[in-house]
Design a protein around this nucleic acid. Structure first.
Length: 316
DNA sequence: ACAGTCCCCTGGTAGC
DNA sequence: TGCTACCAGGGGACTG
């Protein structure tokens, strides 16, 4: 499933292949991919057709493309969320339709200078493919970002409720400390709460907690500065590693984005590893912990009982 | 404010 | 073989 690093790879791909091109035609193959857009498919088509795509932006797992707005007073963005299974592909119109193709945007040529620089004509369609339809597209007004107080930055109104993500400069160890401290809940719950910090899904939450040697049920309001900083660093490292793995394919002539960036195959230390020896314990030469799995928040949590013990000091 | 549950979906897999 | 049941998970809505 796409997590923040995969969404960032998509953002880069869209930036490279689709930015500064005009949407000439919009085809909605499945209206369910517009579930979050109350105005409906006709308005979606009307609002989007003829607009020029700007440079794509991202916060957490929300991706958006500002629409150039010469004649429109209210800046607007095309917002894309990949959900569980969303893909963005840039392909030619003669490529066969994917089984779960949901929305097609026919794109005009790139600006002359840019096209010459790339040496060949880019494919003429941007396709949104989504098997499970947890993702989708919608249009949303762009408004100043009050969260990070960087007044230049605009974000979609539909994404104003989410906090910055671990890769944003505004998110520091101190910021993390403050954000966690004011929550009276377990640390993993806090990590998965998009209003605390965004872009952290079940997989990276478990991986980061493993790296930071923290148990998922640790009370958020009792974390120390050092723990908060350690956890943030762990999140950043695990995401950077995945980005590196996923980023290798972004040169290809399509915007890569299925869930399986190579990272997931090779580098998971906790998530999905139930029953295996914890790699860190094994290296340390003590009796190795065995990764455990438990149901938590209606999902699975994985942790090493040796490296990530339940705290003994009552910090629950 | 927080916890829990349900829902949106499809496809893979386990069990009968 | 084919049926049913369940699981995976982001995020939002709703209830307790």
């Amino acid at each position: 499933m796409p997590e923040l690093p995969e969404v960032e790879v998509v953002r880069r791909g869209v930036d490279r292949w689709a930015a500064h091109r005009t949407v000439e035609e919009v085809t909605v193959h499945d209206e369910r991919s517009l579930r979050r857009y109350a105005e409906g498919p006709a308005a979606f088509r009307d609002q989007l057709t003829g607009r020029t795509l700007g440079a794509p932006q991202r916060r957490g797992k929300f991706l958006w493309i500002p629409l150039a707005s010469e004649h429109t007073p209210q800046p607007t963005a095309l917002v894309i969320h990949l959900g569980m299974s969303g893909q963005v592909l840039v392909e030619n119109d003669d490529a066969p339709a994917e089984k779960h193709l949901k929305i097609t945007l026919a794109l005009g040529d790139k600006p002359q200078a840019e096209a010459a620089e790339q040496g060949h004509a880019p494919p003429n369609q941007l396709r949104f493919v989504d098997q499970r339809i947890f993702g989708g597209m919608h249009l949303s007004p762009l408004i100043p970002d009050v969260v990070t107080r960087t007044s230049q930055r605009l974000i979609p109104q539909s994404a104003t409720h989410i906090a910055p993500d671990p890769l944003e400069p505004a998110v520091t160890g101190e910021w993390m400390f403050t954000a966690l401290r004011r929550r009276r809940t377990g640390i993993k719950r806090a990590l998965l709460d998009q209003t605390v910090i965004s872009g952290v899904g079940n997989i990276y939450a478990d991986e980061a907690l493993w790296r930071a040697r923290m148990h998922y049920a640790r009370r958020a309001e009792t974390v120390t500065r050092a723990e908060a900083a350690r956890l943030l660093t762990a999140l950043q490292e695990v995401m950077a590693a995945a980005l590196e793995a996923g980023g290798t394919s972004f040169d290809a002539l399509y915007v890569n984005v299925n869930g399986a960036s190579g990272y997931f195959d090779r580098s998971l230390q906790a998530y999905g590893q139930a029953g295996r020896e914890c790699s860190r314990c094994a290296v340390a030469g003590r009796s190795a912990g065995v990764i455990q799995r438990a149901r938590f928040m209606g999902r699975s949590s994985y942790w090493c009982p040796v490296c990530q013990p339940r705290p003994r000091n009552g910090r629950w």
